[in-house]
Every structure is written in C-alpha cells, then in structure tokens.
Amino acid sequence: MKQHSISQIFESALHDFEKALSRNSGRPDEIGGPREKQVRDFLKIFLPEKIGVAKGYVINQGGNISKECDVVFFNKETCPRFILDVENDLRLFPIEEVYGVAEIKSTLDKDELNNAKQKLHSVSAIYSKRYDHIPDDSEELFPHSKWNEPFKIVFSYKMWKNWDDFEFLYELHGAHSPDAAFILDCGAYINATDETLARKNSFTKRNTLQASTQDREVHNQIVSRFACGDRSRHYDDFLFYDVKDAVLLLMMYTFVLDEIKKMELPNYCSGDYIVFWAAQSNIAFG
C-alpha cells in the first residue's frame, strides 16, 4: 500500500517553485511576474477556501491607499470584489477584510528588502489611519474596535550571496520590520514574541505549542527579555530556523495559517465606504 505524507505534498509543491525560478526570459517583468504568481498559486491551493489570495492595494474608509502588494490575504466570504484588472486579478481590499500581506522577491538583497519593507509599511499606515476620517464631534460614537494589525511577511527564492548574517539581521529589524522572512534557499526568520519563543522551543523539543508555553526555559527567556526593559513583549530580534526547500514552504504555510487563525476581523458597514469615498470625489447625494 502506498504511503502518503505531508512531506510528499510539499516536495511536489517545491518542483513548481523550482520551475518558476528557472524561467529566465531576460526581461525583469517576465521573470518577477511568474515567480510572484507561483507563490500566490501555492497559497491559493493550500489555504482554506474562505481565505482569499490576490494582489492589489489595501484601502480604508478615509480614502487612503497602500502601495501595491504582491499578496493580500483576505476574507473571501465577505470581501467586496473591487477588481481593477480582471486578467491579473488586481484588486482593492478594505482594511477590515485583510488578514495579512506579503512581498515576493527573486533575490533578497538590501535594496529589495528595503523595497519590501516600505510596501509592507504602507499597509501599516492604512491600518493606523483607519479612523482618521471620523469627524471629531462624532468620534466618541464610533465603535473603535481593536482588531489586530495585518501581519506582514517577505518571501524570497534566494538570498543575496553577499549578505553576512549580522548585516542581514541589522537591515531586517530596522524600521518597519516584517513579522517574518522566508528565504527558500536559506531559512526562516520569525520576529521574536512570547508565542514565537514557545514555538521555537516546541520545534527543538518536538513538543506542542501549548506544552512549550509552560516550559521553564521559555519562561526564563521571557523573564530575561522583560527584565531588560521591553515592556511591549514584542522583542527587537528574529528567531532563525535553518530550514530550506520543502520544509521552508511548510513552515511559511503554517505560519500564515496560524496568523490568520489568530485574527478577528471587525464588523463594519460596507456602505460607509460609499459615504466617505464619495466625499473624496466631491459627489453629493441629493
């Protein structure tokens, strides 16, 4: 009887990534496009049906628009279909429908990393300005729900050969750090938090996340970091996983899935987009 495994599934997926990387027409637009599409196709196949995956711009009710994102994870069941380009599935996404965003790079050098961080930060700006359109005299009537900011990741097929580890980490956790970076031929970098410290422990000891949250080593690490003055419990460093290829894809997939499961998107009135975007366009309702 033929044996099946998760490893087998992701080894098969890796072949498609290798094909996308091997395509080289000489034109940058014909190289990057298929590689970005491969990542989106992979995520569309593996993520649950209710989670949409497309590219486009994140917007808020006040009329702010992010930079174009290579991947937007959104609530497929309720997100309006604001499609800008049907052929390329380029859309506008209300911030209230967005779980997270990702930027895709062929080779992650300093310029490409900074470009990715700026694009991802533009989504954080949309989130931070989500209530700016509310008039001051009615702001107290608006239900300021405290849903989480969309998660942000970088994926790259290759690491720039001239990076050294210190320089890469320095650039990675400068301003506008992503939550994680996944490099197919190198490894995974996950921003350190109480939870990700426990997850690292669970990988090391081959234990569940729940059990690792109670582990004495994890407790000591958290206490040590907290004692150093980081009251936010969101630490300024990254945990490195020396994984590549199929295992790297599996790690990225499970990271995205876990982050989405933690997100609780807010209730909002779709009609409010009409009210405030109409005002941006000087449209008056008689």
Rank of each mutant, 00 (worst) to 15 (best):
N282Q: 10
K44T: 15
L248E: 10
M263R: 10
E77M: 07
V39I: 15
Q214L: 09
R40E: 14
S232T: 11
N60S: 05
L265D: 08
D132R: 00
H121Y: 04
L257C: 04
D16S: 15
R130W: 01
I45G: 13
V58I: 08
R231Y: 09
G100S: 02
G26P: 14
A188W: 04
K262D: 09
F226Y: 09
R81K: 08
T107K: 05
L184G: 09
K110W: 03
F151P: 06
E171C: 09
V223C: 05
Q280M: 04
P178G: 09
V275D: 13
A246C: 11
V72Q: 04
N148Y: 06
V218Y: 03
C269R: 14
D109Q: 02
G271Y: 09
K146C: 06
F155P: 02
K152S: 04
R130V: 01
A227T: 12
K261Q: 14
K55W: 09
I104W: 02
C269L: 10
A279K: 15
A13T: 06
P48Q: 12
E112D: 07
E18A: 10
V256H: 05
E77W: 05
N114T: 01
H4M: 15
E217D: 07
F10R: 08
Q210T: 08
V123C: 01
V71C: 05
S5M: 07
D237Q: 11
T208D: 07
L113F: 01
D137G: 00
K158Q: 10
P135N: 00
W147H: 10
K152L: 00
D245V: 05
K158L: 08
Y131D: 04
T204N: 11
C228F: 11
E112Q: 10
K67H: 04
A125N: 02
R27Y: 12
G286L: 12
Q38A: 15
K37S: 15
